[in-house]
Amino acid sequence: MSLYTEFLDGSVVALSRIISHIENRREGYQEVLSRLYRSGGRMYRIGVTGPPGAGKSSLVNRLAGLAAEAGHRVAVICVDPSSPFTGGALLGDRLRMQDIPLDKGVFIRSMGSRGSTGGLAAATSNVAVALDAFGFDTLFIETVGVGQMELDIIDACDTVVVTLVPESGDAIQALKAGLMEIADIFAVNKADRAGAEQMVYDLQSAMEMKAIHSEWIVPIVATQATGNVNLDELYRHIVGHKAFLENTGLLARKRTEQLKKKVEQVLVKSIQRDIDRTLLNGAALDEIALRIMRGEDDPYSAGQALFQRYKFGS
């Protein structure tokens, strides 16, 4: 029996094997993905992002539990940073998710970022497709959270929860990091700490400005993930946002945009690979560089010439 057949039979072992194939781009993974894409599309994806130490894992720990209790089939992907030097990673998020009821079939998968810098691993959205096809209807994705611009999440999720803590600096910092634009919901976590009220207030004022241009008013929820305070409210807002997207037709629009981007990505990557293979290897490029250094050519003309040759084969 092939892995794919076992997968269709509902084997978790096969699912997790297929995820490894996708993650490692082993031979044939695209063919599997093509099939998986066709049998998915029902899963709702919630992204949780925020600066380091904001308690993302602890929030997911609680939210996944709530979703499972509500009868959903829940999966979780958590991404941790890989070392740029050794490629190794300590994937510790699972450790923070001890309350997730694994006996209710919740599936957790840890991924190393493996060189990606946008907050997710390159394969994260493809892994989500596998989970979708397997029959999970709710997915939580937790980003790396090392404090850089982690905006990959917009293309991989339907609802984005941005987590902040009073100590992670003021709301202005969040604005600067571009988190304001991507947030559908704010969770001000560790809300028992000093500065939490101020942060909620600052975010509210900032969101009022944004609300003028949008029908969705970004809720700001003060939570304490470890003490399990206000998590049900946060969960209610996630459900509310989902209903909003569905009722307004925005969900379909969002996903259309994401899929267009995905197709574009596949296309660009194919062309890139093709160019790498045909034009950019070998001595030709070295030769061009030398000519530019000698003042006999320039990058623009040379690039255009290569493009013409690629496109028209002349």
Binding site: G88, R94, L95, Q98
Partner: peptide, 11 residues
């Protein structure tokens, strides 16, 4: 980890 592996620690 320093040897380049992905390590999941369960606690």
């Amino acid at each position: 980890r320093d040897a380049g592996m992905e390590v999941i620690y369960t606690g």
